[in-house]
């Protein structure tokens, strides 16, 4: 194993997609990097006093302000004349990014800070026990969107965060998946080679919250991509560059390996609804090969 800047011994669950992705991100960024981290699973399992998994300067302040803290770090480094040699990464989960931290993130993007924002998207508030976030997919069973006689799980689609980030006119936006580690590292390196604000959103399965086998993290992540439910693409200066899907799989293959969609499999109408989401993504982000 090569030397990593995110040491083992932290307390993440077995099969945690976020822990894998976070290591890939910092190892791609390298040691001349400073991280501002939102409150969330990653912060909790990696920095329980007096231990830390991080071998780079790392700061956690609050749930929603890593983008603003990173703006301050970048400003401090600019003042010191050190910004050109040091990367600044702000990172958080989907709730900290798309919900409570959206304002601070929007401010950071709009002001043009030279910061890479990484959103680890495990599609719910996992740290507090699997509550629905703005990035929870349609019909997903969370503890605050439980299916019942009057409900089919989460009633709303995922907030289109990458498009919201791109709408700020920033030079680089990308999605990635922990199913494709090299793609994550390639995108992090590309992002850090570009000056200005960057946004990368990484799909990270959560075995506990999604109720899948902890040995299946990578496979589950790949199925999300192969079904079109998690579109992988880049916006370079606003130009869409999709990662094509060689052979599109039906959504059922992705849904059936997880407990959070179990209620759906009994219902043809619900299944159709999810297939429509995948079809929409495939069209919107031009995911189909040979087209």
């Amino acid at each position: 194993m090569t030397e990593t800047l995110f040491k083992p011994g932290h307390t993440a669950c077995a099969g945690c997609g976020q822990a894998i992705a976070a290591r890939l991100v910092i190892d791609a960024a390298g040691k001349n990097t400073m991280i501002a981290n939102n409150t969330g699973c990653l912060e909790v399992f990696s920095t329980k006093y007096p231990e830390s998994a991080w071998c780079v300067p790392w700061i956690h302040s609050l749930f929603e302000n890593c983008a603003a803290v990173a703006s301050g770090i970048e400003s401090g480094l600019k003042y010191l004349g050190k910004k050109d040699t040091i990367n600044v990464i702000a990172q958080g989960g989907d709730g900290g990014t798309a919900d409570i931290g959206l304002q601070a993130l929007s401010g950071m993007l709009e002001r043009g800070h030279d910061v890479l924002y990484v959103c680890y998207d495990n599609e719910a508030y996992m740290n507090t026990g699997i509550q629905r976030s703005g990035l929870t997919p349609t019909t997903s069973n969370t503890t605050t969107t439980p299916p019942g006689s009057a409900s089919f799980g989460n009633p709303r689609p995922k907030k289109p965060m990458p498009d919201i980030a791109a709408a700020h006119g920033i030079p680089y936006v990308a999605t990635a998946s922990v199913g494709y580690p090299q793609d994550i590292q390639k995108k992090v390196k590309k992002a850090l080679s570009i000056k200005g604000p960057k946004y990368i959103q990484i799909h990270v399965p959560c075995p506990l919250g999604w109720r899948h086998e902890s040995s299946q993290t990578s496979e589950v992540a790949k199925l999300a991509v192969e079904t079109g439910l998690y579109p992988i693409f880049e916006y370079e200066n606003g130009q869409l560059i999709p990662r094509k899907i060689a052979s599109v799989k039906p959504v059922e293959e992705y849904l059936k390996v997880q407990g959070r969609f179990k209620h759906l499999l009994k219902d043809a109408k619900g299944l159709k609804e999810i297939q429509a989401v995948a079809d929409y993504n495939i069209k919107k982000y031009q995911l189909k090969a040979q087209e």
């Binding site: 501002a36 603003a68 803290v69 703006s71 301050g72 400003s75 003042y79 304002q103 929007s106 002001r111």
Partner: peptide, 25 residues
């Protein structure tokens, strides 16, 4: 000679100076 950061809220103003101060500035 300072970085003047026009933020979108006081929550971020305080967070920016927190980040700046954390770099030893």
């Amino acid at each position: 000679n300072a970085q003047f950061v026009n933020v979108e809220s006081e929550h971020s103003a305080a967070s920016v100076v927190l980040g700046g101060e954390a770099t030893g500035v």
